[in-house]
Amino acid sequence: MASDIAILIAGAVMIAAGIGAIVTRSLLVSIILSGGVSLVASLVFLLMGAPDVAMTEAAIGSGLTTVVFLYALARSKQADHEDSDKRVDNPASEAGGAS
């Protein structure tokens, strides 16, 4: 029963983070929130008795995927604001001012 309640809470957090990741206009915030969705999902996998999958999801879904996104963002010189086509040298420095 305790694990059922934990799964429900984790599901609510996951849905909130997912909606936040789509709604926000900042790509950096979006990437971090989607990493958060994966991290909470790995907690759910662990509660469901799947430690193998939980390890993989925590390492790949929330670790390497985030890094891959950040590298691609820096590589393409995409500004942090998603509607902008401006090229910037450091997307992270735009995060405060763009929105």
Binding site: G18, I22, I31
Partner: peptide, 26 residues
């Protein structure tokens, strides 16, 4: 299922290429 729907919404409603990739991972 709700997370899948959120991802689908992101894929369909957002034009930015990087945002679509993020929605795919969700």
């Amino acid at each position: 299922a709700i997370v899948v729907l959120i991802g689908l919404w992101g894929i369909l409603a957002r034009p930015n290429l990087f945002k679509i990739a993020i929605a795919f991972t969700i």
